[in-house]
Amino acid sequence: MQIQVRPSITTVNPRLGGEDSVDLLWLSAILKDIKAGSSLIEAAKKAGTSYRGAWEKLNSVEDALLTPIIIRTKGHGSKLTSFGEFFLKFIDDLRDSNQQYVKPYQEILAKKIGELGIENDRRWRFASSSDAIIQQSVSEVKGFDLKIAGSSEALEKLLNNEADLAGYHVSDKKRSKVIHSHLSKNDLQIYPVMKRIQGLIVKKGNPLGIQSIADLTNPKVRFINRQTGSGTRLLLDSLLKDEAISPSEINGYDHEEFTHTAISNAILAGKADVGIGVKNIALENGLNFIPLKDEIFFVAMKKDVATQSIAKKLIKKIRSNSEAMPGYKAVSLNSQIISWI
């Protein structure tokens, strides 16, 4: 049973109109990182939020307060205004007060709901990065409403209490540790569930002889990308950075799809020559696959959600299904990936 009362501020949704809300504890984490010298992009990544999402939420808070919180200077990053400094301390004080007085009521409410048996009919909101194993497991373990989202968006929804669970994947150990630390500080339980291989998906027979990221700079090669904020897009960008390749050198870098299956479909339809995705999707569609990097897939959830038998069943099912899928391997213990957390 996930019941958590957290302070928030009512704002106006910039895209949809009407009232919205911003979690003040999320905002506090963003402001603290900016105060410590991080850029808004860096702070957003640490908070498991897309840059666009963080930018919109900050703007909406400033509009609600009629006062700037941060100063944005082109080429020089961001810093807190004097009011921003005050507001950060205000949130921290409010958080301490909220924990002291609200927690007992949360526990009373959760206990009463449990006594009434309402939990049995609950459908848990699961925001997750696109993955065939996740989709298969959710279909086999009833009781979850799955929403496909990029890794960053999924974590943002969990931290903003718009989801009960979040599925995300990372290929960089340093970034994985940052995310794990941030989620743990927000009283979340994190489960490593599987390892999978990401790579280049190309036409059958690989007619263009594509072998590496460097081959994407060939102007004759048409690339299809994943959407901004997805874990796969972050992986690609890190590989390009390692190879000192500019996105502008890739024909199709700005052409986006939202799932691994959509990438393979674009290649099958002749709309692209190569994309980036997971091995099993390439094999299922008779396409060639060039491995690039292993990554770990995690499922994060509130600790009270983690105590539910259905959540434990889902984790077990994901691990079991991953063992039967090419390009995947179950991960069940933190000790197996100690360098990632």
Rank of each mutant, 00 (worst) to 15 (best):
P104C: 04
F86I: 09
E323I: 07
D63N: 07
F86S: 13
H76W: 09
S60N: 07
T307E: 02
L40P: 03
P14E: 02
L283F: 06
K45T: 05
N285Y: 06
E256F: 09
G275P: 14
T67G: 08
R52N: 12
A127G: 13
F289P: 02
I71D: 07
L208Q: 00
L268T: 05
E107V: 08
A300P: 06
I118Q: 11
A132M: 13
R123N: 04
L239E: 06
R72G: 10
D23P: 03
S238I: 08
F298Q: 09
I267G: 01
K157N: 10
K147D: 14
S28Q: 05
D254Q: 11
N321I: 07
Q136W: 09
I318H: 06
S246I: 09
R123I: 12
F289H: 07
E257L: 10
N334H: 04
D294P: 02
Q99N: 00
K45N: 04
Q135E: 14
M325Y: 06
G229S: 15
N251V: 11
L146V: 10
Y328F: 06
L88K: 07
S171A: 12
I41R: 13
I197E: 12
A132R: 12
L236V: 09
D172A: 06
G143T: 01
A154W: 10
E119T: 15
S8I: 13
T217P: 05
I134M: 14
D254M: 13
S322I: 13
I70K: 07
E243C: 11
G231H: 13
L158Q: 03
I263Y: 01
I30K: 02
I148H: 03
P14K: 02
S139V: 00
L200F: 06
I41N: 12
F87K: 11
A300K: 06
M301C: 15
E284Q: 04
K45C: 02
N206T: 02
I267W: 02
A149K: 10
K112Y: 13
P247Q: 03
A149M: 12
